[in-house]
Structures are given as C-alpha cells and as structure tokens.
Design a protein around this nucleic acid. Sequence first.
DNA 1: CGGACTATTGAAGGATATCAAACCGCGTGG
DNA 2: CCACGCGGTTTGATATCCTTCAATAGTCCG
Lengths: 226, 226
Amino acid sequence: MKTLQLTSSDRAILVRSRFFARLPHSTVEAILVGATLSSHEEHDVLFRQGDRIDDVFFVLSGLVRLYRLGKEGREADIAVFTKGEMFAENAMFLGHRVTASAEAAEASIILRLDSRKLRQLAAADPEVAQAIIEHLCHRGKMTEDLLAEDRLLTAPQRVASYILSHCPNGSTSFSFRLPFQKNVLAGKLGLAPEALSRAFSTLRQSGVTVKGRMIEIRDRQALERF
Amino acid sequence: MKTLQLTSSDRAILVRSRFFARLPHSTVEAILVGATLSSHEEHDVLFRQGDRIDDVFFVLSGLVRLYRLGKEGREADIAVFTKGEMFAENAMFLGHRVTASAEAAEASIILRLDSRKLRQLAAADPEVAQAIIEHLCHRGKMTEDLLAEDRLLTAPQRVASYILSHCPNGSTSFSFRLPFQKNVLAGKLGLAPEALSRAFSTLRQSGVTVKGRMIEIRDRQALERF
DNA sequence: CGGACTATTGAAGGATATCAAACCGCGTGG
DNA sequence: CCACGCGGTTTGATATCCTTCAATAGTCCG
C-alpha cells in the first residue's frame, strides 16, 4: 500500500462515474476534501468483516472483490467492483461497521472518501442524498439479481446470462474480452472455478468459443434459449 | 381486494415501524396524504415483475412475498415482509418499474403510498431522504445476508442460522413460534419444502424440536457449532 | 367423520463441490 | 534459445447436497 496524488485522469474517472456524474463540480470538490488515494497489490485486504471504517471507497483502477466469510476460510462473493464504482457506503449508515470483507483482486488504485463528511453533505444537500439513494437502489438491484440467478439458474445458464449482459442488443453474433480472471468471474457467479470451466465447455455446443479472456458468441438466440 | 379506512391501530403500526418511527408526526401525515388501503387474500398478486407502479407498499397486517420469476413458472423469493415493513421503494428511483413480483402469502392489509409524493418529500426534506437511505441500507444488508447464506451454508445450517436469529442472546434454551407457514420459510431460505423438513429432522439431533409452528431449542451452543 | 391442505418420508436423479492430476501460457534464468 | 517453474485453467473421478416425484401421515376445520 502506497499513498499517491490525485491525477487529472483520476478526476476524469470520478466525474464520469455513475455516482458523481449527476452532481455539480462544486459538490464533487466538497466531497473530495480530505480524500486519500492509495495503491494496492493483488490480495491486499482493504477491510475485514466487522471492522469499523469511516471511509467510502471508490475504485480508480483495478478490481475489488467484496465477500463474506464462512466457516473454515470459505468465502462468498457479494460483488465485484471495477473502475468508477463506489462501495462500502452501507457502513456509513449502519454504525460504521462493514458486514463484509474487501480485497484487491488485481493491482488497484483506490480513493477513500471521508464518510462523515459525505453524510453531512447528504443531510444538507438533497441532491447528494438523491445520488446516494439512487446508488443504493442500483446496488440493491444488483444483489437481488445475483440472488435470483443463484436460485433460478444452473451454472451454464448463469454464465450465459453473464455473457448476454455484455451483448450489445441487436447483434446476433459478437465477442468481448472478460474484464477479469476466470477465477474472479467464478466467484461472482457463485461457482467453483472448475464449475465455470465446465459451464463454458457446455456452452461451446451453443456457439460460445473461449480463448484466454476472449469470449466469442456465434448465435445470440441459442444462448437466450439455454 | 377491498378498499378500507385507515384505523387508529393502523396508525399505531405505522408510527412504530422502522421507517416512520424516526420521522415527526407532521411528516408522517404529509406522506400519508393520498394513501390507499386495501385488503387481500392469500395468493392475491400485488404487482408483477416488469409492471409500472407509482406506489410504495406498506404491510399493516399479514405477509407479503417478493419474488422473481424464472423459466417454467419457477419462483425465487427475494424477501418476505411482515407487519410494519415497507417495500417496492426501489421502483420509485428506477423508472417506476418493479423487478420482482409480489403476492400476499396470507390474508393481508396493505397500505399504498403515493411514490411521487414521497420522492418529492425526500427531495425537499433531508430527514425523509435520510430515512429512505437507512431503509435501503437495511434492505441491502438483508439481501446480502440471504446471498451469503445461500452460498456458504447447507440447508440445515441455514435453518439453524434462522432459528438463532430469533434467539434472545444470552439464553441457552428457548422456544418461539414461526411467524409463517413452513412453506414460506422454505421459500425465504431458498429451499424446497421437503428440504426444509429434512433440515429440521437433521437438527433434531442437535436439540431442536418442531411441533406445528412451535420451535423449541434445548442447547443454543449445539446449534451455533452446526 | 371427511376433505383439503400441509408436512413428512422414501427413492432416484441431477447439479455442483471437492480432490487429484494433467495441461497450458508465460516469464525467468541458465 | 530453451528448459524450467509457476499460476491459472481444464479435465476426470467421486462424493455430497439438494431437487423432484410419489406416497404416506398429520392437522385443521367444516
């Protein structure tokens, strides 16, 4: 972990992000007062389940995995955050305690905002409150999506659903690059890495080709039917 | 479905509820303007996944199941709401579309609030915004809990966890009455009814006795170890 | 007492985890 | 340049857990 300076490209990521985009520049600046920047290597732990934290986190680059701990070192991923996403804002309203752990899933640069300041701003400025509300709704929907997919779909179906969520609607054939290691994808989908691998090979017969991180889809319809 | 009048005991439930309790009476009254009350029988559908709705729902009595639909009529419960709980507040900030269906899981009395009005109030009154934020954080945590339990625990462990969440901390032996049918509990825990039944019988050897809706626990520690 | 719904139990099959081994891509150092 | 080693990935074999279907047992309420 190393402390850094906020660059102008960092600011560009901030103001384009879902959360900050809707806020005027002056408000963004107010939120940024007292923010700290740090760089982390893969597997660096940002916080642990049960910790008291007074920050809200924002990913400037890299990847962060949010997970709960189970017996015997088991871990269950709750979410994965990439560039431009904010997390651990829950803690700010739940007694500053986090109910999950977070670690960098690859080398990452993380911005830490002062959660007390943000909460004060939210109390004073309805626009900030509104932004937080919409952010929470979005996060809630993501978690519900995961839960519903876990309960309704088999492994290949979940993978198909993930692939389709990356498909520009309208195209019948397309390809894209996985934004992270298969390992991480497996965790996000609630699968063991082996199960993800097998799911991919099941989907091969529906026109999905996997080479490294590149995914290629021949027939979108076939996937949707799966 | 039948339209009703808001009674004084209904008001009592409202002002004691997690969401309304923190707000001054005048604000509560403002939110209640234009609210409508309705009574539903078991299996009445309140809304369907994808519907456009302009209400926020509040359970005055009974039980509501929130669920997503899968292929071939499968359903996955996202949450179960009892007296004093509010739901579908998400839709208000996500284009007034609901991403899940809701139905009464037993005869219920439901209050419908005007979501446009509530959103306006939130924009004008930071106290209301704050209440909504905390409500969303709480809901988000509940959903995360479910997701984590699904991924980390076996059926008997999930049931044990559910039972323990009803245990007054400190006591070693206790008993309580299930707040709803086993059917509903199974859905909430993401299990088939048969699996719940088998889980209970597995837990018998850890000192759990089930008779009808009554659950009796002989040794709390034994459950925690499970 | 009968009927309908709810819950339990049994048997069989399916899906995924787990363990173990082989494979691959890639950077390193000889 | 090549052998080596390492981590990530794939594949195979097996075990576990849960669902599903079917049948039986309870329970509530008329």
